[in-house]
Design a protein around this nucleic acid. Structure first.
Lengths: 234, 234
DNA sequence: CTCCCTGTTTGCGCTTAAGCAAAGAAGAAA
DNA sequence: TTTCTTCTTTGCTTAAGCGCAAACAGGGAG
């Protein structure tokens, strides 16, 4: 598989890029394909590359010293990840990047990106947009984790993930599919596999979704919205 | 009180700025002084200004719909806050900024900053540095909140706050003072006033710190470090 | 000096959700 | 088909820490 430079226009950061830049980027980068559960990189590795996900789904995880993990972000095709390494030379990845399904991504050298930036304002602006968006999301999630109960957080997590990496199963159906295990959802919502399993079972009984092995199909997103803004404001 | 333009060199973002830029900034900005517990701005206000704190201490809070608050960051003199509003025209502050003690800050129009940026690479780089640092901290705190117990989180919170806004009481003494109530610490560590009060009382018994009304004096920071990496890895 | 406001402490009960164990499916591999 | 692995479910127990209520205390205002 080959990447056509013009395809990179799907990426927010490269929307406005001149085609010569995109040629350069594709030429200087390599396409890495990995299978499900494999890693693009580990937490602590030197942040040598930024990535553009071409296909598949990737989660970004951080572990604490005793090995417990949290899911900090989940990425779909034409999104960048590990882009922050571009800013500080010599930095390490603060997260690991693991494939939720077999995935391929374009690996762009951080150094190369850094060299391009001074003469290309669009890169500066684009990166800042990325970063502000990310900060806003992190702040919101931090607040949720500190102030909301598990059930509410899980509903918010499902809705967020649905919009970020969900796959519609049919054009005219709001139902959305997520390739995530109970454990993944626990790590994304700040809970445990057991609790997630129980809550999903209850929601399945209510017809809001269908949960199967390694997969959740959200049948009725609006029902989750109601849980979010019903179950706490009374 | 007047700000001398050269004083702005204390600010990371302006370390490398030419003096003409600093003149411009001071000229175009206003100094706002507010008393303890007052706000520089509220969550949801249009993000019209970025701030440089000149004196005092400020906390950045986010509230959820039912009014519970979390403390997202705490700022000391010569640090910037609300700098992200510069990136997206028309954005709103996602947080409120409240003074922990009477404080004054230089309010710089976001629009003005934005106009300066294209021709001043140091601003771009500086802002990105700020943002990456902030993202790394947020990610770490998110992970802590999701995976660590209250006692550990509170120790980490105290250590972090000590290094960020702590005041040494004497040159040769590691003891550090924080102008925070139990409630503040609860909002910073993701817990409750009651629990924080109990844990601080215990640590006071152990001689690690002295807790008084609206103030914590950390006598033995190293003792907190031991709690952090003792109490979970066994 | 006294009052009053606001922050703090502490006992107590209670809920949430974590955590363990063990059994149960769903696929994949053989 | 049978086996194996991995993910999931569910009952049960327990601990952490939340949250109420009520008493307490520091320190500024008058």
């Amino acid at each position: 598989m080959k990447i056509a430079p013009a395809d990179l226009r799907h990426v927010d950061l490269f929307k406005e890029a001149p085609i010569e830049d995109l040629d350069l980027i594709v030429e200087r980068s390599i396409l890495r394909s990995i299978e499900q559960d494999a890693f693009f990189f580990f937490q602590g590795d030197p942040a040598s590359h930024a990535y553009v996900l071409i296909s598949g789904r990737v989660k970004l995880l951080q572990s604490n010293p005793s090995g417990q993990q949290v899911n900090l972000r989940t990425v779909k095709e034409w999104e960048m990840f590990a882009a922050l390494g571009v800013v500080r030379p010599g930095a390490s990845y603060p997260v690991a990047a693991q494939a939720l399904e077999s995935s391929s991504a374009l690996a762009i050298e951080s150094n190369f990106m850094r060299e391009m930036m001074p003469s290309r304002p669009y890169l500066n602006f684009g990166l800042m947009q990325l970063m502000t968006g990310y900060i806003n999301e992190l702040q919101a999630r931090y607040r949720e984790l500190a102030t909301e109960r598990v059930e509410r957080r899980l509903a918010l997590t499902l809705l967020r993930l649905a919009s970020q990496i969900g796959k519609r199963i049919r054009e005219d159906d709001p139902a959305v599919e997520l390739p995530l295990t109970r454990q993944d959802l626990a790590e994304a919502s700040g809970s445990t596999m057991f609790t997630v399993s129980r809550i999903l079972a209850e929601w399945e009984r209510q017809g809001l979704l269908e949960a199967s092995r390694g997969r959740v199909l959200i049948r009725n997103p609006h029902g989750l919205v109601q849980i979010v803004d019903g179950a706490g404001s009374e």
